[in-house]
């Protein structure tokens, strides 16, 4: 199994440890992991702000980089960035037959991390161990466009000493929304506060998600309001309790 890593730009720059955990987990399963170094960003920030030309231009580069070699799959530790490529590239390239076909073909092989583990590798138990009581936040793209809901929970259910609990209104968005977080800061923050209220009520000491962008938002608000809740990406949890 030959897999190319698609590491979102903010993971590359802010949370590289998430990418490292993805590599370690995949290698442990015997996957041949490659990181195409020409990659930068999928273009989502421009797309979400309505700058489709700029997004298309960055998207073309993404297609070039990931088409250069033949991979069985392209794995990404983000439901949101996966969706940008698999769903929204065909959307922005709708009227450009060549790029549209390329993005549809490539899009079928881009898989979100937990989706890849459970549905491609057929793995649910990675032998990880993490003590704590956790809630899982499903990013909106992962929930609605990808429909990958059960996979992260199945993976977390096999983590030793980790108790996964439910929380109120867990389907609600965290309020990040890309540039929304800075264009509508008050509403965005109020949305984060609602998640944090539910998190507190659940009694969880750990917040886990498959999207580092949601986590960056919630963590930023948690720390600002004096909460020390542990915040982890799914890959870090699945990589924990393992030597080397």
């Amino acid at each position: 199994m030959r897999v190319a890593l698609f590491v979102p730009c903010y993971v590359d720059q802010i949370n590289p440890e998430v990418g490292v955990s993805v590599v370690r987990v995949l290698r442990r399963l015997g996957v041949d992991v490659t990181y195409p170094e020409g990659q930068t960003c999928c273009g989502q920030p421009a797309f979400n702000s309505g700058f489709f030309d700029e997004a298309r231009s960055v998207g073309r580069r993404f297609l070039d980089v990931f088409e250069r070699e033949r991979f069985d799959y392209i794995v990404c530790p983000s439901g949101s960035c996966t969706t940008m490529v698999s769903h929204y590239y065909p959307f922005i390239f709708k009227d450009l037959p060549d790029e549209r076909e390329r993005s549809e073909t490539l899009g079928q092989r881009v898989r979100e991390f937990s989706d890849f583990l459970v549905n491609v590798m057929g793995v649910k138990d990675l032998g990880a161990r993490l003590e704590g009581r956790a809630v899982f936040h499903t990013g909106c793209h992962q929930r609605r466009e990808l429909g990958v809901l059960e996979e992260p929970r199945e993976l977390l259910a096999s983590v030793d000493e980790l108790e996964l609990v439910g929380w109120e209104n867990e389907e609600l968005c965290c309020g990040f929304g890309g540039t929304f977080a800075v264009k509508m800061p008050d509403v965005s923050t109020a949305m984060a506060d609602e998640k944090i209220k539910a998190l507190q009520k659940s009694g969880a000491d750990t917040l886990i998600s498959g999207d580092s962008s949601c986590l960056m938002h919630l963590k930023g608000r948690l720390r600002r309001t004096g909460h020390d809740t542990r915040v982890l990406h799914l890959a870090q949890v699945l990589d924990s309790g393992k030597a080397g």
Binding site: V7, V11, D12, Q13, I14, N15, P16, E17, G19, V20, Y35, E37, A181, V182, K183, P185, D186, T189, A192, M216, H217, K219, G220, R221, R223, R224
Partner: peptide
């Protein structure tokens, strides 16, 4: 607009690449 209400994460010492 971000830091008005939320902490900003620092860029990592070393990037993933």
């Amino acid at each position: 607009a971000w830091t008005g209400s939320r902490d900003l994460p620092p860029l990592a010492e070393k990037s993933f690449r």
